[in-house]
Each structure stands twice: as structure tokens, then as C-alpha cells.
Design a binder for these strands. Structure first.
Lengths: 248, 248
DNA sequence: CGCACAGTTGAGACTCATCAAACCACGTGG
DNA sequence: CCACGTGGTTTGATGAGTCTCAACTGTGCG
């Protein structure tokens, strides 16, 4: 539950980090795609890699943010606690998503960021943006694309997971979870029922009932508590049926 | 319902436009806050002011966008139509909000933008961003702040209007509508029941019932079909009661 | 005046929340 | 190793909230 805002960088990491940044570029993970070798050399020293266990928080709402974070692996949830103490999960961030960009603008964080699974992130310090503004204006376009991506994700979250009956919302959540799988046909992270309820605005009981029902229907198979295999053909077919039902 | 993507600028508007941009700056409407007089002179010629009647659309989803738009007055809704033909309103934009920024990045629009009331917008052409990148990198920070604002709005919309029972969602919508009023204590724009249902994910009947009920309770008074006076003290008190009920 | 369409209201069906109890997974200590 | 406690999950019974279908009313416009 600690917030490792500043992590002492192991000397041994300096070299691997340069390699990681280069890999990011190769894989079009985007932010530094336009950087040349020299600029990359200059920047990679400022970027730290951080590991979080499930439940650990990356930052908290209203903290004066010092960095944004790009997710390298795992799933991070962005959530808010309203005046009545209820949590609401705003959206999830997976590999190559960036969270906490508001820190780059000198603003405090707009939500809590908490690891759902084991997570690796790269820390992008606030002053990086200032340097980029000065030296590499072209990079700012990549930054802006990240903001736009976050906005697209938010809009999609709202239209997919905040609309329609509970069963359809659960099905769409499963579909979204499949996007976070490392490889196709691999087990996906299965959120706790309480997390589901905070994502889909329903009670834990309803989430539990629907997941159990979908297990019986053969849409998913659980392996342990926090992992499941999705049977994508069944899932997609069920989702289609669901959409037709309401249309008829 | 037309999309006035390119509007022939009346010669008589060139001078007033310069004045308008200057006013924007004075009122901290932000985007060009950092511009000096000369840069302002250079830019204002590229900015056109557009007027829309209620129901007219500013742009449509998937169009190859050529411009972003800053709302000068009135209310614009961002909405999507899903695969089943149902509309979902993502959020509202009012004075000083900017919509369609994805066009600045060469992307197509991510949603439809439709005027809810009579609307005045300023058109910011796509090439403006390129010029700013080249000549005034400091301005890009203002652009990024606009993206962040849109993201904050999206997050707030989700937590306020997509959570809890129907009555609370309607109350919070009324509260949000009060933010779009030109002056305090002025009549606000009252959405059609169908618009409310698309904003709050409920049926028109439920929206109608709740609005009628709130009229009887003295929370609002309608003037004609599309306008109402909100009695803020009653509204805020009702909202407080609502929050306590569920907590007890 | 009368048509078309938005808004309102009612009755019944269905979904989902609430409350309660049982079940299960996991870690702790005997 | 098992007993046990804790907290998450599942399931059931019941009621509140919301949707559906339908009728009626109000508003604006030709």
C-alpha cells in the first residue's frame, strides 16, 4: 500500500534500462519513437523501472505528482473514492498505457492508481517534459497522442461498461480483460468481485452471480481465484446473442 | 444537421475576430494566453467563428477531422451511436471547453459533436498545431492542459452521472447543468428527456418521472420546454439527503 | 383546427439490491 | 498435520427500483 514515489535506482539497472527504452522504441511503444540515439542516451538515465505487488498503489489522488508512469506489464486500475466512501474504478491501464500524465503539467493526480496484478512500470519524471519542450518539440506530439489515447479509453469505458443490463456489462468486461492478456488464449487476470462491482456499478452479489452463471455456460474457466481462461468463441457468441435479445 | 466543416469567413469578421481572440486571452480562456500581440495577429486570421442551431452537428465520428473547436457559448454534446443504434452521450462541453482535439493529431473524430442549444464556436484549424510546434513550443503546454481538462471532465462524468440510483443521477445532472449557465440564478438549458436518457442510461419514462417529481418538490421550475430555473438551495439539500439515505 | 411528436402517468413484469446464511480458500497457531 | 479464524465467494429469499407497454396530455406548427 506504500507509494514508491522515488525509488533508488540500482546501479546495475542503468544499462538494462537503456536497452529497455530502446526496445520500447522498437515495439512502437511510442513515446520515444522519434528520438535519435543520442537523445535516447540522455533520457534513459532519468527513467526508473518500478515493480509493484497486487494492491500496492502507484500514486494517490491529490498528491502533488512528480512523474507519469508507463505500464510495461500487468494491469493498473485508476479509481476514485467519492464523498460517501465508495470506490469507483474509472478505467484500467495495461501494457504501453501511460497513467498520471497530469503530473507532467504540474497538477496533482486526478485519481488513485493501484496495481491489480503484479506490475512493472517505467517512471517518467516531471522535468522530462520541460526538457522535451526545449530540445525536441516533435516529441510533444507523441505526448499529446498519449493524452488522446487516454481520452479514447475513457470514452470506450463509458460506452462499453456503463451501459445496459448487468449481464452485458460483465460480458464486455471479460472482453476487455482479454485485451490485457500477454498472449492470446492465455489465462487472463480475473478481478475480485468487489473490483468488478466498482468497475460496473453493481453489487458484489450480482457480479458473483453473473460470473458463476457464465462459468456454468462455459464462457470461462477459473484457475485459482484471480485467474481464468476465456473461451473467446463462446464469449463472442454470447455477446452477440445478448445484443440481439434486446433488439428483438 | 449539416456539418459546416469549412465556413467562408465574412470579410467583416476579420477585425472582430482579432478582438474576440484578445478577449479570450484576457478572460484566461487559456489556449492563447501566452501569445504576444504579434503572434496573436498572425493567428487570429486563421480562426473562424461558427454559429450552430440546436440539433446541428459540428462534426461526425470517423470523419477525417480538419479542426478542433472551442466553445464560446452554448452547450455541445459528444455522443456515440453503438452497434445496436443506441445513442450514448459521453459528456457535455460548455464555454471555454475544446472538442475534437484529435483532429490536431491527424486522427478522425472519436465521437459526434452536436449542438444542444444555440452555440458559438471558434474553429482552430489542424495546421495551427504544426505552426505552434514550430514557432511557439510553450503554447503546446496549453494544448496539453486542454487534453487533461477533457480527461478530467470524462472522469467526473463517469463518477457523477454513471453511478447510483436514477434519482441521484438526475440530481447530479441538474447540478452539472447549472455549471453551463451564463450567470448564476439564470434559467439553465433543460435537455429533452431523450437526451437525459442517453446521458444517464435510463429510459425516457424514468427521466420524465423523476423530473416531474423534482418539479413538484420545488427543485426546479420549467419555463417552456427547454429551459428551467434551478432552485439551488433545494437542489443541494435534496442531493445531501439523497447521499445520507443510502449511507444510513 | 388538427396533426405530429414530446412529455406525462399508470399497471405489470423483470432486474437488481439487500439481507442473510452457507461455503470456500488461505494463513495462523496449536 | 490439522483446527480454527478471517475474509472473499456463492447462493437464496425478498423487496425496491427500473423497464416495458400502453394510454393519455400537452405543445408547437402547418
Amino acid at each position: 500500500m506504500s507509494a514508491p514515489e522515488v525509488i533508488p535506482l540500482q546501479p546495475a539497472f542503468y544499462n538494462p534500462q537503456a536497452r529497455l527504452c530502446a526496445e520500447c522504441r522498437v515495439r512502437r511503444f511510442a513515446l520515444f519513437g522519434a528520438l535519435d540515439e543520442a537523445a535516447l542516451e540522455h533520457i534513459h538515465g532519468q527513467i526508473a523501472e518500478i515493480r509493484l505487488a497486487p494492491g500496492e498503489s502507484l500514486y494517490r489522488m491529490q498528491q502533488a505528482g512528480q512523474a507519469a508512469y508507463t505500464v510495461r506489464s500487468g494491469v493498473v486500475r485508476l479509481e476514485r473514492t467519492n464523498e460517501r466512501g465508495e470506490r469507483r474504478i474509472l478505467r484500467l491501464a495495461g501494457r504501453s498505457d501511460t497513467v498520471g500524465m497530469e503530473a507532467m503539467l504540474g497538477q496533482s493526480y486526478a485519481a488513485d492508481a493501484v496495481a491489480c496484478t503484479e506490475v512493472m512500470v517505467c517512471r517518467l519524471p516531471r522535468h522530462l517534459l520541460d526538457e522535451l519542450t526545449r530540445d525536441q518539440p516533435a516529441l510533444l506530439r507523441d505526448m499529446m497522442k498519449r493524452w488522446q489515447r487516454a481520452l479514447d479509453d475513457a470514452d470506450e469505458w463509458l460506452t462499453e461498461l456503463c451501459t445496459g443490463p448487468a449481464r452485458r456489462r460483465v460480458l464486455r468486461l471479460l472482453l476487455k480483460l482479454s485485451e490485457f492478456a500477454e498472449h492470446d488464449e492465455e489465462p487472463v487476470w480475473l478481478p475480485a468481485r468487489q473490483e468488478m462491482s466498482a468497475m460496473l456499478d453493481m453489487t458484489v452479489e450480482t457480479a458473483s452471480r453473473l460470473i458463476s452463471q457464465l462459468k456454468r455456460e462455459g464462457v470461462l474457466t477459473a484457475h485459482g481465484q484471480r485467474s481464468a481462461t476465456l473461451h473467446m468463441d463462446a464469449l463472442l457468441q454470447t455477446l452477440r446473442d445478448e445484443n440481439l435479445d434486446a433488439g428483438a
